[in-house]
Design a protein around this nucleic acid. Structure first.
Length: 276
DNA sequence: AGCCTTTGACCAGCG
DNA sequence: TCGCTGGTCAAAGGC
């Protein structure tokens, strides 16, 4: 893991940023008001915070994933990110894919592993970045279509990040999506303009659900049961992140995470040096 | 006006 | 070599 120290430091820095943001969000969620107007204001404050937090954590993930892929390209990385609504409390999962392929360029197919990682999520729309859909394909042998997204800032900033979203489960209460990310974001989306309301709507909720399930409200969707669930790629395989997450307590009613404990565990996890 | 999604066509890898 | 398949392009229309 040649530059793993640098990568780990960067990942930790991003996690700390995400932690700070989630702390702010936590404080916001703890504010109790009976006024509908206050709730609207709270949503307006919470949504960008939540998005920024996700973005920071997603960035940390991509850094860690890229470190992992340098170590062992053979095994693909699967990140199980269960971002379910507050009322359900899904545990995290870590698993590995084998011999999966995605395609790159105009019809060029390539393996997952280099610059790519996979997540499974119930909330594919909102990962903190802004995406523009450029294609949709109904795959043979699948009941669900696959949606192709590229970074909104591809033209402006040359960001090569892409993601492919495919629904894998049509459970009525919680459809599951597999999201394949390709290339890290090189854009500085925080410094660019905020999307207009119509853009937000289209950008964050443009995944079709093939079983025509009614989407939950955006805010409800965006409140995860756990702040973050990470993969462990090849060299992280000895440490089970599930243990980290499961040891982190959360009061479901008050939406209170033991954030300090989580951050501590995360830094331990990210600092773990691959024993190669 | 600008940015988005939709959708059919096109292209290239693969068996 | 050829047909199938999946990723991308680009025109059209919507918001």
């Amino acid at each position: 893991m040649g530059n793993s120290k640098l990568g780990t430091a960067a990942a930790i820095s991003e996690v700390v940023r995400g932690y700070d943001i989630i702390k702010q969000l936590q404080g916001l969620l703890q504010l109790k008001s009976r006024k509908a107007q206050d709730e609207v204001q709270m949503q307006e404050l919470a949504q960008p915070l939540f998005r920024e937090g996700l973005q920071a954590l997603n960035h940390a993930l991509s850094i860690l994933n890229s470190s992992v892929s340098k170590v062992e390209v053979k095994s693909e990385i699967v990140v199980i990110e269960s971002a379910s609504p507050v009322h359900s409390n899904n545990g995290s999962m870590v698993s590995y894919a084998s011999d999966q392929r995605i395609e790159n360029g105009r019809g060029k197919r390539r393996r997952v592993g280099e610059n790519s990682w996979i997540t499974n999520t119930t909330m594919p729309c909102d990962d903190g970045y802004q995406w523009r859909k450029y294609g949709d394909k109904k795959l043979t042998g699948s009941n669900f279509s696959r949606s192709y997204f590229r970074c909104t800032y591809k033209e402006e900033q040359g960001c090569q990040a892409k993601k492919v979203v495919q629904q894998t489960s049509d459970k009525l209460d919680m459809p599951l999506f597999q999201v394949t990310y390709t290339n890290k974001h090189t854009c500085n989306s925080q410094n660019t303009r905020s999307p207009s309301p119509t853009q937000q709507k289209s950008t964050f909720c443009s995944i079709k659900q093939d079983n025509s399930i009614n989407q939950k409200s955006h805010l409800q969707e965006c409140l995860p049961s756990r702040p973050l669930q990470l993969n462990q790629g090849s060299c992280f395989g000895d440490i089970n992140l599930r243990q980290i997450i499961s040891s982190t307590s959360m009061n479901e009613i008050n939406c209170e995470w033991d954030l300090d404990s989580l951050l501590r565990d995360f830094v331990d996890f990210a600092s773990y040096d691959c024993p190669l």
